[in-house]
Write a protein that binds this DNA or RNA. Structure first.
Length: 184
DNA sequence: CCCTAGCGGTGCT
DNA sequence: AGCACCGCTAGGG
């Protein structure tokens, strides 16, 4: 397995307005290749190349926007745009494809994902690969929790992880899984 | 609750 | 090649 796949450039980035702020979707020639959560701090958004966007990419984007809207409204998206996950290492892509097999409203532990991809002792590396997931929400790294059923981490911020889990009915609105609290 | 050792992938020297 | 990260985990106090 190769260590690094060919790099597909992010040719287009398009904003998606949402209640919590603006998501940014990135597209390559192969499909959706990145999704950013709204920036925490108000931020002068960089140049967005919406000009000359091919019709195909606009269709993908329509699918992305609709799917994101559904997911944030607490209903499983019916269809997704094509996902371009080619920018990952072999290990990362294995992890990401395992994540896509975790159904809406279900969870796994990092160790379970590690076993599912045939690397039973690589739980920690699975966490790192989750953190490198370029398409959160649709590649549901938020459904992976620590083995003791705590929340684990989330590169988009634990508030988002909690919010997504709640939308799927996994966490009770008020109380929830306790948070990892080591050296703050 | 705390701490520790062991773990594997990644990225930087 | 070496090494310091880490969204981890099992085991022990």
């Amino acid at each position: 397995m190769r260590t690094r796949s060919s790099i597909e450039t992010r040719a287009w980035e398009i904003v998606i307005p949402a209640p919590g702020g603006e998501f940014v979707a990135h597209y390559s020639t192969r499909g959706l290749c990145g999704l950013e959560f709204p920036a925490r701090a108000p931020q002068h958004r960089r140049r967005v190349s919406t000009a000359h966007v091919p019709a195909r990419v606009r269709r993908w984007h329509a699918a992305t926007a609709r799917a994101l809207e559904q997911a944030l409204a607490g209903r499983p998206p019916k269809t997704l745009p094509p996902l371009d996950l080619s920018a990952g290492t072999g290990f990362q892509r294995r992890v990401w494809s395992a994540l896509r097999r975790i159904g809406w409203g279900r969870t796994r532990s990092y160790g379970q994902v590690a076993r599912a991809i045939g690397r039973p002792k690589a739980a920690r590396a699975v966490g790192t690969a989750c953190g490198a997931n370029p398409i959160p929400v649709f590649v549901p790294c938020h459904r992976v929790l620590a083995a003791d059923n705590r929340l684990g981490g989330f590169s988009g911020g634990l508030d988002w992880k909690r919010a997504l889990l709640r939308r799927e009915g996994i966490m009770r609105p008020g109380r929830g899984k306790s948070q990892r609290r080591r050296h703050p």
